[in-house]
Computed example of a mutant assay.
Amino acid sequence: GSSGSSGRSAHLRVRQLPHAPEHPVATLSTVERRAINLTWTKPFDGNSPLIRYILEMSENNAPWTVLLASVDPKATSVTVKGLVPARSYQFRLCAVNDVGKGQFSKDTERVSLPESGPSSG
């Protein structure tokens, strides 16, 4: 057992909303067709472990929609598949801990999928 410490520390770590994920970057997948790789840097978690990330997408300047509502909090990358050729995509994400949902990251650069040529056998 621990002995000698009477009373709790006066410096309680205040739990707060997590910060926005940093450096979000979207790039065309070199492995899969019609897929985009998204990477980011884990943000400050607000002194409370991250529960999940929420990933939003904007297609062709459309309003933001939730693409993935529960991304693994340990992840710092995700591959978005099944996208449509000749359209452009933008992404942003936010972190969630038990306090709530933090700010969204900056939007990624807009990534345009190449138009699909004739599919080769």
Rank of each mutant, 00 (worst) to 15 (best):
G46S: 07
P43E: 00
F44Q: 08
N60L: 01
M57P: 07
G46Y: 02
N61D: 14
T39I: 14
A35K: 11
N37G: 11
L50A: 06
D45E: 15
L55I: 13
V31T: 15
G46E: 03
K42E: 11
N61I: 01
W40A: 01
L38H: 08
D45A: 10
E32G: 13
L38C: 12
L38D: 04
I36N: 01
I36C: 06
N37V: 14
L55T: 07
E59T: 08
D45L: 02
I54Y: 04
M57L: 08
E56G: 04
D45P: 08
L38A: 02
W40I: 05
I51G: 00
N37Y: 07
S58V: 02
P49S: 08
L50C: 01
I54E: 13
K42Q: 06
S58I: 04
S29T: 14
P49Y: 01
I51Q: 12
E32I: 14
W40Q: 01
N61A: 11
T41M: 09
G46L: 00
R34M: 15
P49E: 11
N61T: 03
M57R: 13
R52Y: 06
G46D: 05
P49Q: 05
Y53W: 06
E59W: 00
V31W: 09
S29G: 10
L38M: 07
G46F: 01
Y53S: 13
N60P: 04
R34D: 15
R34E: 12
R52P: 08
K42Y: 11
T41F: 05
L38G: 07
E59G: 02
N60H: 10
E59M: 10
E32W: 12
N47L: 12
N37P: 05
S48G: 03
E59Q: 14
N47G: 02
R33E: 15
G46C: 02
M57A: 13
P49D: 07
P49W: 04
P43N: 06
N61E: 14
G46V: 02
E56C: 05
F44S: 08
N60D: 13
E56Y: 00
T30M: 13
L28W: 01
N37M: 14
M57T: 09
V31R: 14
T39H: 12
R33F: 14
I54P: 05
S29D: 00
N47Y: 10
M57V: 11
A35L: 08
P49N: 04
I51L: 08
N47Q: 10
E32Q: 09
S58A: 11
R33Y: 13
P43I: 02
S29K: 11
P43Q: 03
R34F: 15
T30H: 08
P49F: 02
T30I: 11
E56K: 13
E59C: 12
M57Y: 00
V31S: 15
M57W: 00
K42I: 05
E59Y: 03
I51N: 00
P43S: 04
E59A: 13
F44Y: 04
T39Y: 10
R52C: 10
P43F: 05
R52L: 09
L28G: 10
K42T: 12
W40G: 03
L28E: 06
I51E: 01
E32M: 13
T39C: 10
L28T: 03
N61P: 01
I54K: 14
K42F: 10
A35Y: 01
T30D: 08
I51D: 09
I54A: 06
N61H: 15
N37R: 14
G46Q: 03
S29R: 09
